[in-house]
Amino acid sequence: MKGNKKAVRYNKWGYIFLIPFIMVYVVFQFIPMVTTIYNSFFENYMSGLTQIGPRFVGLENYKNLFAQGDIGLYMKNTLVMWIICFIPQILLSLLLGAWFSDVRLKLKGTRFFKTVIYLPNLIMASAFSMLFFTLFSDGGPINSLLMQIGFISEPYKFLSNVGSARGLIALMNCLMWFGNTTILLMAGMMGIDTALFEAAEVDGATSTQVFFKITLPLLRPILVYVMITSLIGGLQLFDVPQILTNGTGDPMRSTMTLIMFLNKHLYSKNYGMAGALSVVLFVITAVLSLIVFKVTGNDKRKG
């Protein structure tokens, strides 16, 4: 009885220690979220120097958002760039992860390689993008290098062609994220019971068989986690294309992402449309997060 009382007295400290988190969360995340949703139901923008609204318009902003069709284009751009970044990234990460975690292979210098492949993840995305902009500009070092070795006879306009502009953005993102993915997958592979590999070896399985029949199936929860979090990250694609194209999304708006679109509305103070777009993005991420939550939740129950 007495011990119980004491525990209760201590346990109020649980609430006390939570105060900073809750307060900051409510002020800087919850209230902004509510006002963002609130804004999405109001007409509120600047037409020249005159302020239009705020006036309640119900779902008008959402209707306009989808009727204009831009959101579809930007969604497509974002997804296309995510896919051409994610496919090589996951394949390379699986391969490297398998090699790093394979004890029989006895690779030397893995620490060096891990250090190098993780490095681009810490680089300031805007500076990295500015670097690529200068390197791949029409008179930049890459073009002069390619011309010096006789690969091309005149500068290739990397930033004026849809394919190469999207490709560059995907390349930068891939470079920045494959090291991180490799380390996540490697940690997952190291967590697999080594007895399984030994048993497979005794049965004479080749390393390809081991990879496809043991490693990959057991890695599925982590793979789903990596894929969904990468998709959530991909939807937030902003710094790299914003700096590379100076916010225009050129050529022909083919590299304009959803967040760049949002950023544009925020700068032009078109708060109604920005609100509607934010809510759409919020709903998409919430659904994706729920999937992650389910996957990792299941994983936890198992072990």
């Binding site: 902004p32 509510v34 006002t35 963002t36 804004n39 939807l235 920005a274 934010s278 991420t285 992650v292």
Partner: peptide, 13 residues
């Protein structure tokens, strides 16, 4: 998982 960008509007206000 909720990205800061989706509440940026309310945050700026």
């Amino acid at each position: 998982m909720i990205p800061t960008q989706v509440t940026a509007l309310g945050f700026v206000q």
